[in-house]
Design a protein around this nucleic acid. Structure first.
Lengths: 216, 216
DNA sequence: AGTAATGTTTACCAATCGGTCAAATATCCG
DNA sequence: CGGATATTTGACCGATTGGTAAACATTACT
């Protein structure tokens, strides 16, 4: 049994650990910008700094690499939503959820784009995860939000669209980064824009754009 | 000169009109879900209901089809922003901008996904349009927003991020449609969700989530 | 009708794709 | 060291890719 791909109870070698990390990192880079079908094994191999057959020694197929990446992304991508605490203060919870999602867009833009690519293409590989675990989690959090609304802590509005809008605004900074960069031009300064974005989004979600009425 | 692809001052045939429409429509369908590199000419030809060489009689290369589509998308995609009127009432202008963008997401989801795919992949074909015309237009509208803010019509906030957030929230319903569908499940009823989305977004952008203070 | 231009198809090409294989090489361990 | 195991490579395969050439069919126009 000299094939790591057929590993059963077999122990994994140091080299296996390293190479698999290299491959997955390279694959994340390429998949996230070209999508599954637009990515070639040769591309991944080149970025990973190894030959194609060598890469295929660690992952039998292109699908196998993609599958591992998608599983990891899905697993970690929902962490911020899971951390959404119904015992906390609604305002603080929403603020920190926005901040956490924004941090993920900043720290893991490739993962975000991989996910975006997958969903854009009709989510062929993760549809079950969306209609299953994801939906269940969102349903649960929607109930929390509704409870907050009934208690008058936040205004009444559709909790699902609220969650969508947080996803959309935060992931935008990862998925549409080159557009953000192009439009901001000079203003796109290093990491400062994430603070700007965080400040703006928190204000938007808390108070909206209209100035507070002088009370009628 | 029997080649429509080399047409100079030549008039276009009825058949040319029809076939080009068919091809572009089919190509929009395929490109928008698989991206440029993930799309094959055969796929487009099949959806368009013709043979590959026949398709290539009208468009010399895959790039040529893609180029035409991108030009059209770019041209129409900014219409809502261009319609953003600095003479109008700020609140009404922002409301109708949101509504228009949401209508585009509803009526032209494929165009939205084509654009999203392009930007996700680093905007290789439209970078110049982003740093040029798009940036200029956004700069102009940002000034309008700043003027509104100085006049106290809307609260002070970064106008660029405001525009980004409108783009993100509205296009989300086209680009991430399958996710929206998966999460909403039963609630995803025909076209009604766009009304829900419009209602939510207008409320969010106008007033935010926190209930109005009883005035301190 | 006849003919020139336009449109379509069949057969094909070189390049690239995902993936295999056996031989060569490097590493681990007693 | 030596041998077993793990890793790497080059040469290769059939399928698919984007695109072409030329024969064939159809349309448009006088």
């Amino acid at each position: 049994m000299s094939d790591p791909r057929a590993a059963k109870t077999q122990r994994r070698t140091r080299i296996q650990e390293e190479k698999e990390v290299q491959i997955l990192d390279a694959a994340l880079e390429v998949f996230s910008t070209h999508g599954f079908r637009g990515t070639t094994i040769d591309q991944i191999a080149e970025v990973a700094g190894m030959s194609k057959p060598n890469l295929l020694y660690y992952f039998r197929t292109k699908e196998a690499i993609h599958r591992v990446l998608m599983e990891r992304v899905l697993d970690t991508w929902l962490d911020p939503l899971r951390a959404f605490d119904d015992n906390g203060n609604p305002e603080a919870e929403i603020r920190s959820y926005i901040r956490r999602k924004l941090e993920m867009a900043r720290d893991f833009p490739r993962e975000s784009r991989l996910f975006a690519n997958e969903v854009l293409q009709g989510a062929p590989y993760i549809m079950d995860e969306l209609t299953g675990p994801l939906k269940d989690l969102v349903d649960e959090k929607a109930k929390v939000i509704r409870a907050w609304q009934k208690a008058g802590k936040i205004v009444k509005c559709d909790p699902y669209h609220l969650i969508f809008s947080i996803w959309a605004t935060t992931q935008h900074y990862a998925d549409f980064d080159v557009q953000v960069k192009a439009v901001l031009g000079q203003r796109y300064s290093g990491e400062g824009r994430f603070d700007d974005a965080a400040r703006f989004l928190e204000q938007l979600f808390m108070h909206g754009l209209l100035p507070p009425k002088p009370e009628a």
